Simulated assay, not measured.
Amino acid sequence: MTRKLPTITEAKAEARRLRQQLSDQGTQTGHAQSLELVAQRYGFRDWNALHASIRDLPPEAWVPGGRVRGRYLAQPFEARIVSARPVRPGWFRLALELDEAVDVVRFDSFSNHRKHVQCVVGPSGTSREKTSDGTPHVVLEM
């Protein structure tokens, strides 16, 4: 059976759901075993083989020309992806062209609008960089 390969985040979420389903049916499994079962569903011999195949693949929308939406410095946006490059497994440097410029300053007496943004986001669609209140600079809807 061939299926579109999931991202690492999607595969792990699928493993958690599978583990819960099996538990509801009275079969206790560990997280590692559920990861192995998910890998086998996609035709791989084990989790390591599946992980190696998908670790450098961005989510389907994270390709040049793709569309994303989310929040940049807590402000909503929609954007076209100009470029997407892997930085390390599961992390990607994205160059975004926002549909509408976003004011990146929170002061009433000053504004600074940006229409082009570069960011590095991880498997959950958030940046490591955070504002002073702990909010990630970029949060993409997944």
Rank of each mutant, 00 (worst) to 15 (best):
R55G: 02
K130N: 06
G134E: 03
L35Y: 02
E141T: 11
R93A: 15
V104N: 04
V120A: 07
M1C: 09
E141M: 10
R88T: 13
S53W: 03
E129F: 06
R88M: 11
R71A: 11
V87Q: 10
Y72S: 06
H116R: 15
L50Y: 00
E60Y: 08
P76L: 01
E14L: 15
T29W: 07
R45S: 05
A49H: 00
P89T: 08
V121D: 03
G30K: 09
V104F: 10
F92R: 01
S34N: 06
P76Y: 01
R41K: 10
A32I: 03
G65M: 06
E14N: 09
R128C: 04
R80F: 07
T135N: 10
F107G: 08
R71H: 15
L57W: 04
P89K: 09
Q40V: 02
S127F: 05
G26I: 05
G66S: 04
A79K: 02
P58E: 04
C119A: 15
L5R: 00
R106Y: 07
Q118G: 08
E10F: 09
T27S: 14
I81W: 08
Q75M: 13
S124A: 15
T126H: 10
R55P: 01
W47Y: 04
L37F: 08
S34P: 03
M142Q: 14
D56N: 11
R19E: 09
R80E: 14
S53R: 11
S23Y: 12
A15F: 03
V121C: 05
E141H: 12
M1Y: 07
R128T: 12
D133P: 00
F44V: 02
A74D: 14
V82A: 13
L96C: 06
P59M: 11
A52L: 06
A13H: 10
R88P: 03
G70P: 00
S124G: 11
H113L: 15
L94N: 08
L98G: 05
A32G: 13
D108I: 03
R128E: 13
A52W: 01
D133M: 12
P58I: 04
T29P: 01
H137N: 05
K130L: 05
A32C: 06
S124Q: 15
P59Y: 07
F77N: 02
A95G: 06
T29V: 15
E100I: 10
D133V: 13
A39Q: 02
S132N: 09
H31R: 12
V87G: 03
S83Y: 08
P123M: 09
H31W: 12
Q75D: 06
A52C: 04
G43K: 03
A39M: 01
I54N: 00
D108K: 10
C119Y: 08
L73M: 15
S132T: 13
V139K: 05
R69N: 13
H113D: 14
V104T: 13
E60K: 13
G30Y: 00
S124W: 03
L18D: 07
A32Y: 01
R19C: 02
T135L: 06
A95I: 12
E10G: 04
L18V: 07
H31Q: 14
T9S: 14
T135F: 08
A15Q: 05
Q75L: 13
S34Q: 06
L94H: 05
V104G: 09
P123Q: 14
E141G: 08
